[in-house]
Write a protein that binds this DNA or RNA. Structure first.
Length: 362
DNA sequence: AACGGAACCAACCGCTGTTCA
DNA sequence: GTGAACAGCGGTTGGTTCCGT
């Protein structure tokens, strides 16, 4: 049952706070502390409800609040923490000293969210957007009959079947361009090869979601992949990505005897799904996949500890990475204990379990 | 200068989880 | 065990400011 609004009583003021009201509230809290918000307004001589006083204090009047524009570092931290924590603004704010959840929420909705959308990144999942994927590119027209090619009913059915998977456009393009047998030129034939393992990957994804429902919609691909690799459940996205890449390489080696690409796909697809779901940059994914496949023959256990840097979704950060600037780039991830890992400049993992422990929110 | 739409952000609303009588 | 009171959170609203025409 929802509770009655605390400000229903008549006579309580609403709307913007006046400097006099601010003064009263600050003076009272300085003298008596925060205490009971319900009784505070009366004691402080304010015609406001306690809830309004609490919001005004926590979002505006608190002395430790940092005003002004967000720095590049703060912005990057918000994006990375949001990719881990989702819309848990208070949890994100707890890791950004001087910033309130309300401020971060507003900044996200007015700046970051829009920019991610412009970049073709879904601000909820941090994955490439479904609506930007050209599914028809999957069905490569036979070159000899390109001008007279019409999709068959089977092609259209295939497109419809693939649509739910289009949240991973990089994966789909990659699969179409890299994994299909070179000798296969027919669109329907390619789709027939592609479909089974994509569906398999989707089913794995769905069963993972059913087995371990994510706390909120921004669940990472790592969580989805965890059903196939249970050890990944508490691994950081970066670690999951690396483990998935290693898994791909291992499975490539393991099943290298299959000269039929479709058989390899059966084994490689789940790991590839993980690579795609933890990667938001197409070229990076292509690079990872290419290097994984080409190096798979040399695969050894030493690779397990190598690192794959998480691509930045921030133009500002991208600029920093491409320049010779000495500005630090900080990467957030989750370690095996569920702690946020802060990776400065990709050189060092700092486990700030006390400051950055997000295990409570996972 | 005037207007309208976009952007911004403080504040509110409604809900959930916790505490306590 | 139950329900009211309370604190806190995330989503939304609406007033204000900015900016382009």
């Amino acid at each position: 049952m929802g509770r009655a609004p605390c400000c229903e009583k008549s006579g309580l003021k609403k709307g913007p706070w006046t400097p006099e009201e601010d003064e009263k509230l600050v003076a009272y809290i300085k003298e008596h502390g925060q205490g009971n918000w319900r009784t505070l307004p009366k004691n402080a001589g304010l015609s406001r409800c306690g809830k309004s006083c609490r919001l005004r204090w926590t979002n505006y009047l608190r002395p430790d609040i940092k005003r002004g524009r967000f720095s590049f570092e703060e912005e990057e931290a918000i994006i990375q923490l949001h990719s881990i924590l989702g819309n848990k603004w208070s949890a994100i704010a707890a890791r950004l000293p001087g910033r309130t959840d309300n401020e971060i929420k507003n900044y996200w909705n007015t700046h970051i969210r829009k920019r991610l959308l412009r970049m073709g990144i879904d601000p909820v999942t941090h994955a490439p957007r479904l609506d930007l994927l050209d599914l028809s590119s999957l069905l490569l027209k036979p070159s000899a009959a390109a001008t007279s090619y019409y999709p068959t009913q089977a092609d259209l059915d295939t497109l419809r079947a693939l649509e739910p998977l289009a949240g991973y456009p990089d994966l789909l393009r990659l699969a179409a361009s890299t994994l299909l047998p070179a000798a296969t030129t027919g669109a329907a034939e390619q789709a027939q090869l592609l479909l089974p393992w994509l569906l398999q990957a989707q089913m794995a994804q769905q069963s993972a979601a059913a087995m371990a429902p994510a706390p909120q919609s921004a669940a990472t691909g790592g969580e989805q992949f965890a059903c196939q690799m249970p050890g990944l459940v508490h691994a950081s996205p970066t670690a999951q990505q690396q483990m998935a890449q290693d898994h791909v390489a291992a499975t490539c080696v393991q099943h290298a005897s299959y000269d039929d690409a479709s058989h390899q796909l059966d084994y490689v697809s789940p790991a590839l799904m993980q690579m795609a779901s933890t990667t938001t940059d197409a070229s990076n994914l292509q690079q990872q996949w290419s290097s994984t496949v080409t190096s798979s023959n040399n695969y050894n256990n030493n690779n397990v500890n190598s690192r794959v840097s998480t691509p930045s979704s921030s133009p500002a950060a991208a600029g920093r990475m491409n320049s010779s600037s000495t500005t630090k780039t900080t990467t957030y991830g989750l370690n095996a204990s569920g702690d946020v890992i802060v990776d400065d400049a990709g050189l060092l993992d700092m486990h700030l379990s006390e400051l950055l422990d997000v295990s409570d929110y996972m």
